[in-house]
Write a protein that binds this DNA or RNA. Structure first.
Lengths: 191, 191
DNA sequence: ACCTGAACACCGTTCAAGT
DNA sequence: ACCTGAACACCGTTCAAGT
């Protein structure tokens, strides 16, 4: 009278994403193969397709985990009320995250295939602290443009720093401080 | 008395790089497979290894062609002597190139494997016009930091624009003009 | 001297077969 | 219900064999 006994699951979506995240952190996106992830959770590659559509979806889930972590890091920056100081602090927190998790950071602005694009709400959500500080500094009507200017500069800087684009030497820490100083001045009300 | 007759070459390194460049321009780096390139020059994939070490080297040669083209585009920007106008003009030429050849542009700051890194002189060479305009604007002792600030911002902006990172809407052209305006002001002598 | 097919070790993905 | 080996269509790369 018993139906067929369902075999118990040997892994889970959470475990798969966590394993993928670990691989990305240590080896970067290229290391994220289905066989590698499967091995890390104790199954064979075909079994992953019971929980994930395919590799693009897995990349998206890993990226969304990265964005969650970045959001947390930026949200934890204290707001002092000195708008210029605030935006400098957020920029440094952004850089700290990128340097701590360079492979994860690279994923955020990587040119990803359609199916690997994250939930479009998550990037604006992560940028919230920047947007608020920029609005306080540049005024509400220029908030979006000002925030984009800061994020674009910071990302461009980190992209070059992490990619080894700063070959002319010089003090990279000082260059970052110089840049955010100048930009925060430029976004403020004409003085 | 005749030795073995050497068979004539059916292709050349130049043709291979040109074919690779064409594929990158239309389909991006992912489309650049050895079989695709071989087909475009009329041979089979293994024959490419007579002229190129392997795919990383081919990627490097294509990228160096891109840098040569970008250098040409930036060098052709007229210098007016109004330093602020000059740096704005170079920034717009930079963006124009990136929008005209988005896949080629993406290659410049892509995280490439060791063997695909371009000659380290070429990127500073391409940045020459930016460096000169930044030096004129910010003074010689801040030239490098100022140039890096401009390039970082412009690249970050384009990386977000081309990658679809501007989901909050707004006028992207206006945002670019706003950004370079503000940054060129910020780099100038304290007024 | 150059080009080729066959082969190797990998990819992502599908699917029939096992439990 | 889940997992697997085998298979397929691709990769990059090597190499013996053909001309």
């Amino acid at each position: 009278m018993e139906g067929p006994v369902p075999t118990p699951a040997r892994t889970s979506l959470e475990a798969i994403v966590a394993a993928g995240r670990g691989i990305v952190d240590t080896e970067g996106l290229d290391g994220l193969t289905m066989a590698r992830v499967a091995g890390a959770v104790g199954v064979r590659a075909p079994s992953l397709y019971k929980r994930v559509d395919g590799r693009p979806t897995l990349v998206r889930l890993v990226l969304e985990d990265v964005l969650r972590e970045l959001t947390e890091a930026l949200d934890s920056v204290a707001v002092t009320g000195d708008h210029r100081r605030d935006i400098v602090a957020v920029a440094h927190a952004f850089r700290d995250y990128a340097r701590r998790r360079p492979h994860a950071y690279a994923l955020i602005f990587a040119p990803l295939p359609e199916g690997a694009r994250p939930d479009p709400d998550l990037l604006p959500r992560a940028a919230g602290p920047v947007l608020r500080a920029a609005a306080a500094l540049a005024g509400p009507e220029h908030a979006l443009e000002a925030a984009r200017t800061v994020v674009a500069w910071a990302h461009g800087f980190l992209s070059m720093e992490l990619g080894g684009g700063f070959q002319l030497g010089g003090d990279v820490d000082a260059a970052f401080s110089y840049g955010i100083e100048r930009i925060s001045l430029a976004l403020g009300p004409a003085s």
